[in-house]
């Protein structure tokens, strides 16, 4: 797993011919274009969300150059309750869901990390088959409603709680921990719980962080299951509100019943963009802390799924 970090060349090797000017130019242009394609939309949305009505009118829509700073859009959405309530619900779902998912995944990954243990092979197969065979939309929907989970936020969490792929990634990491380490702890009388908690987990912070991010992002971004299972506007989560504010205006016959917006007039552009920022912010804040672990090779394995 180390070659990924190791082999970043600090400098150009001596046998490589010096770069040509035109080559450098093309490379620089392409890479800048790719970076700007990501940054410009985010920048423009942020600037518009903190612009006054006048600035937006002057720009004729989306604002690119910041002027006339005005945070009334944020004040509005957080006093109205509809957006803040949905964001709050999304955070609860994300926290509860990630805790449950990480707990189950780490425990099962440890439970399956010892080849030769009782029922190891059939259990592993039980998890891996889920890659190939999935339930499909209709049966899942029928099951979740049968369990009485409709209009409950557990309908977002339980069906997505265990991802076999994440489990395999964590298990793979656990199996790479030297067996001597675990054996010596066992000789000292440590049980499985102590070994997992005091030896394995402290060594696996990176992989747990990355898998935790995957789960958390999954819950935070969950949209379609929310549309399926949460019909009351009082239960809606952040992505549903974002869809209702922005895209439903664009497609009047938007799916599901468009929730009462709480605005007699359609929300102003600054308010819309403020909602976008609110949905975006948690991801942009959490991501850099986890991103430095990506290079540990966790992702190189992860991406193959």
């Amino acid at each position: 797993m180390s070659p990924l970090t190791k082999s970043r060349r600090p400098e150009r090797p001596s046998w490589e011919e010096p770069p040509t000017l035109i080559g450098q130019l093309i490379k620089g242009t392409v890479l800048s274009a790719v970076v700007l394609a990501v940054l410009i939309p985010m920048w423009s949305v942020l600037v518009t969300s903190v612009s006054s009505k006048k600035a937006i009118a002057d720009a004729g829509g989306m604002v690119f150059m910041p002027r006339d700073f005005d945070i009334s859009a944020y004040v509005l959405i957080f006093t109205r309750g509809e957006v803040s309530g949905a964001v709050w619900r999304s955070m609860l779902v994300t926290l509860a869901g990630t805790a449950l998912s990480l707990g189950c995944t780490v425990l099962a990954a440890y439970g399956l990390s010892r080849p030769g243990s009782l029922w190891h092979r059939p259990l592993l197969l039980f998890f891996l088959i889920t890659f190939l065979v999935g339930p499909g939309l209709i049966p899942s929907y029928l099951l979740v409603t049968s369990l009485g989970l409709k209009d409950s936020h557990w309908a977002l969490i339980l069906p997505a709680a265990v991802n076999a792929f994440n489990l395999v990634v964590v298990r793979q990491f656990f199996m790479g921990i030297p067996a001597e380490l675990l054996d010596s702890a066992r000789i000292d009388g440590a049980g499985e719980w102590a070994i997992l908690g005091r030896i394995v987990l402290p060594l696996s912070k990176a992989v747990v962080a990355v898998v935790g991010l995957f789960y958390a992002v999954g819950y935070w971004n969950m949209y379609f299951n929310a549309v399926l299972y949460l019909n009351n506007a009082d239960d809606h989560v952040a992505q549903q509100v974002l869809q209702a504010y922005i895209l439903a205006g664009q497609s009047p016959a938007g799916i599901g019943s468009p929730p009462a917006l709480g605005f007699s007039a359609p929300p102003s552009l600054a308010v819309k963009m403020a909602v976008v920022v609110v949905v975006l912010i948690p991801i942009v804040i959490v991501y850099p802390f986890i991103q430095r672990h990506f290079t540990k090779g966790v992702i190189a394995g992860a991406i193959k799924g």
């Binding site: 243990s117 029922w119 259990l123 979740v144 339980l158």
Partner: peptide, 18 residues
């Protein structure tokens, strides 16, 4: 190995049901 099986059980149960 029963502790290992106990640890695997919650995830297995969730996948079984859902």
């Amino acid at each position: 190995d029963r502790v290992l099986l106990l640890m695997t059980a919650p995830a297995a149960l969730l996948l079984l049901v859902f």
